[in-house]
Nucleic acid binder design. Structure first.
Lengths: 88, 88
DNA sequence: TCAAATTACGGTCGACGTAAGGATC
DNA sequence: GATCCTTACGTCGACCGTAATTTGA
């Protein structure tokens, strides 16, 4: 589990689409797909249900999302803090 | 900035030693050294002062530590939650 | 047929370990 | 000389993008 995978997970969860998430992250669609797949393998859980119109969160994915969003928010704060420290 | 780098940062900060941190993380000393160096480059900040007895946090490193610990705690919770979901 | 995701496949970049090189006590 | 940390260097794994395949409306 690494930050770049969690960023992809959050983007797909929000947008409901690998295509759109990959575009936002400046990533190819297969790369995004592989990241989700690896996360699911590590967790031993299906995070999304595959539907022709896109991906929707499973129950497990829904439950994990808030914690992951919290984690990513912390990461943003760390980067902001570093930027501030650098400026002083 | 990735989780494995932050784990190394936290271990070095706690132990005051690359050698001990590398051992705890089952990593070679040079690998741990490189991770710290890359973090410092990305942040544009010196995180540790190099002393013959080991590494001690700079002011910037000290300020960043709590946020990073919070982030790592969130990561632990996510993994725990995934483990629980898998069990049910 | 169209739009979405997955699988297949090389290439390339980087993280790692081993080994050698300072630096400080 | 001993104990740190850093630099050098070659290897190996994995992430990535392009292209082909699959699936469902």
């Amino acid at each position: 589990m690494e930050l770049y995978q969690l960023r992809t997970f959050a983007a797909v969860a929000e947008l409901g689409s690998l295509t759109q998430a990959a575009e936002r992250l400046h990533l190819s669609q297969p790369a995004a797909s592989a990241q989700i797949k690896l996360l699911e393998e590590e967790f031993g859980l299906a995070l999304f249900e595959r539907k022709p119109s896109g991906l929707t969160l499973t129950r497990a994915g829904t439950e994990l999302l808030p914690g992951i969003q919290t984690l990513l928010a912390s990461a943003g704060q760390v980067l902001t803090h570093a930027s501030v420290s650098r400026a002083t």
